[in-house]
């Protein structure tokens, strides 16, 4: 028990030092545009439902950002996992796709912006669904194709790479022993390969979600965006509200960390065998 308390104290030392330094610096700078005090930022964070800089509440903007990330992320996962599994399993598929997919890998998601704008402009899922008014319109219109695409690109590669790796590194003995026991091709695929690759695939999904969330700010800087935490940060910057900028950054960090934690808990529960096998 005392060891646990000591651990928690250890974890808190640096954040506390950081806060103290921050508030001292803020006091000596004495200019809220350059550095607002922690108290100011905390004030914003503790009232997430208040209207901020006439952009709606912090909570609402986070929610809209989350919707965007999830849309782009889901598309990436739905495409990258099957492709990765096929590329990992069939050498021919790997040869066919690897060079081509690899060409696009080094391009930062942000570099796609001009092209994506030329393609999609400010059309959104509302355009696709043909919804023109109502609450649904507000949400769908916030899911611009261009943003979803940028987030998709960010999440796609980590998921793809780990799916390929997961399938490729399945122990050959597992497959051999299943075949000797009379497994058909589909048995090997669904009962051996996929479950054995699952931890690696889920790990890739976790990294992909992190990257997708990090692509958010750049996606929300695109034209046509009038909401979201990323947009809120850039807009707050133009009207010199540094406290809102920092509050937005902290929200991004907290939401990102929470999502990561959910994945970690899931991994720990489901794939205990992998950690203990070694």
């Amino acid at each position: 028990m005392s060891k646990k308390i000591a651990n928690i104290c250890m974890m808190l030392i640096l954040p506390l030092l950081f806060l103290i330094t921050w508030s001292h610096l803020a006091k000596s700078v004495n200019n809220t545009v350059i550095l607002p005090s922690p108290a100011m930022v905390l004030q914003l964070l503790s009232h997430p439902l208040d209207n901020l800089i006439s952009m709606g509440s912090l909570a609402n903007n986070i929610f809209i950002s989350l919707l965007r990330v999830l849309a782009g992320y889901l598309l990436a996962v739905l495409l990258a996992i099957p492709l990765g599994i096929l590329m990992g399993y069939y050498a021919k598929m790997f040869q066919l796709f690897n060079a081509f997919v690899g060409l696009f890998r080094p391009i930062p998601p942000l570099a796609w912006v001009p092209l994506v704008l030329a393609w999609f402009g400010i059309s959104s899922f509302a355009t696709l669904a043909g919804v023109e008014r109502g609450t649904l319109y507000i949400y769908l219109n916030n899911l611009k194709f261009s943003m979803v695409f940028i987030i998709f690109i960010g999440a796609f590669y980590p998921v793809l790479t780990s799916a390929i790796y997961g399938v490729k590194t399945v122990k050959k003995t597992l497959i051999d022993s299943a075949r000797v026991l009379g497994a058909s091709g589909s048995d090997v695929f669904f009962k051996i390969l996929i479950p054995a690759a699952k931890p690696s695939i889920v790990n890739g999904m976790r990294i992909g979600l992190g990257v997708a969330w990090m692509c958010l700010v750049s996606a929300e800087m695109l034209p046509g965006s009038l909401s979201g935490v990323g947009y809120m940060i850039t807009h707050a910057y133009t009207i010199a509200r540094t406290d809102v900028v920092i509050a937005g950054m902290i929200s991004i960090a907290v939401v990102g960390a929470l999502m990561d934690m959910l994945f970690k808990v899931f991994e720990e529960r489901k794939f205990k065998w992998q950690r203990l096998m070694r």
């Binding site: 597992l174 051999d176 299943a178 000797v180 026991l181 009379g182 048995d187 479950p195 096998m277």
Partner: peptide, 28 residues
Amino acid sequence: RDIGMVFQEYSLLPWQTVINNVALGLEF
């Protein structure tokens, strides 16, 4: 199925219980 094999390396499915591992051939 008439010819079974036991490998040197451990070849059990690590995500399955012991009994499910033993029943694997019957599942196939």
